[in-house]
Amino acid sequence: MHFDLLFQNFFAYTITGLAIGAIYALVALGYTMVYGVLQLINFAHSEVFMFGTFAVVWVMYAFGADPTTSTAATIGMLLVALIVAMAVSGSVALALERFAYRPLIKRNAPKLVILISAIGASFVLSELMGLRDNIAKFLTIDDTFVRYVDKARDNTSLPLDINPHRVFTLGDYGVTTIDLLLIFSALVMMLILDQFINRSRLGRGIRAVAQDPESAALMGVNATRVIQVTFLIGGVMAGAAATLYMIKIGTTRFNAGFLLGVKAFTAAVLGGIGNLRGALLGGLVLGVAENWGSAIFGTQWKDVVAFVLLILVLLFRPTGLLGESLGKARA
């Protein structure tokens, strides 16, 4: 164990942990929203995030970005990429709801069947991205879109460099613009979503369906529309997380969503599955715990620490750190 390494670099491990935790939190919102309404885990949500990461890369390709691109142009491209990634992830999430969930929900299928459908959809989406070169070749468009489909099962990186700039020093660590961007973005998006759920008409509909679907239907709430909005919101948040992920990490691949999706699900359970504020708290706590664990035990134990933390929380507080369901959220 290397506690001295953690103490010597405490602020570095903590701030970078919060930055990664912010990404976990935004992806966790998709899990917690769907669970709050349907009492189901959307295991294909990780691929919704993955599609967003590729949308960011492809926007950069479309703009002809390269390492010589100026800072002002990079910021402009990233803003466009954010919008496109949110739109792409939101669309993929809506497609999941329409084809993997709605037919089974209408037939009152057992939840286990719906869960299996979500897992199957996850593999389908992942493999579609991994086979995009073969699909393009079959459609005879591989020459036109070669940069977008080439080496489909390899890592795909941003075509430009995003260099962080130090803003201020905290202890022994220089907090960068990227650190602040990730943490601040997660807090702002969480605040906006929280206000939307608590104050808007659609938000009240979501809470009503989450709390009592039958009573909500009797009161005129369109459950199908509520479920669509729920998936859309989760997808949009995943697209935002995908943009932040590419800014921070810079590389994605066809199965990039798997491990991060598991971590985000862990964050949702850690904070209290079905709790929006719990998703934020769980993501930040998980990111910090991972970094602290990697400092103490070594980087190879990083994932072990994350899941041991989850087990401990479930043993001593099964409802998570906050434990309040979406249906009981304060108005």
Rank of each mutant, 00 (worst) to 15 (best):
S46E: 14
V308C: 10
L180P: 04
K328L: 13
D150W: 12
A121C: 10
L281H: 02
Q211F: 13
G52L: 04
M1F: 13
L131S: 12
T71M: 12
G21W: 01
G90L: 07
R132Y: 08
Y245G: 04
G293E: 10
Y101M: 14
S157K: 06
L82P: 03
M50P: 02
G283W: 10
Y173P: 11
H45C: 06
R225G: 00
M77H: 10
V175T: 06
A289R: 01
A186H: 06
A136G: 10
T144N: 11
K137P: 00
L202W: 14
F297E: 07
A186D: 09
F3K: 03
S325H: 10
G293L: 12
L40K: 07
S46D: 11
H45S: 05
R199K: 15
V146T: 14
L314F: 05
L284F: 13
T266R: 02
T156R: 13
M77Y: 15
K302R: 15
G171M: 05
N9C: 05
N222I: 07
S294E: 12
S117H: 07
F231V: 08
M77I: 15
G327R: 04
Q195N: 12
L82A: 14
S294R: 12
V304W: 04
S185Y: 11
L193K: 03
L104V: 05
A136H: 06
G52Y: 04
T224L: 05
A85G: 08
I296S: 06
V56R: 02
P67E: 13
A22Q: 01
W292E: 00
A295K: 09
L112F: 14
G17N: 04
R204C: 05
G257R: 02
S122P: 00
A73N: 07
G287N: 12
G271Y: 09
R147H: 12
T224P: 00
K263H: 08
R153I: 09
L79A: 13
A100F: 08
M77E: 08
S70D: 11
F3M: 14
S215Q: 13
N108T: 06
T140A: 14
A331W: 10
F184R: 00
P159K: 05
S215N: 12
G64Y: 07
R107C: 09
N255Y: 12
A55L: 01
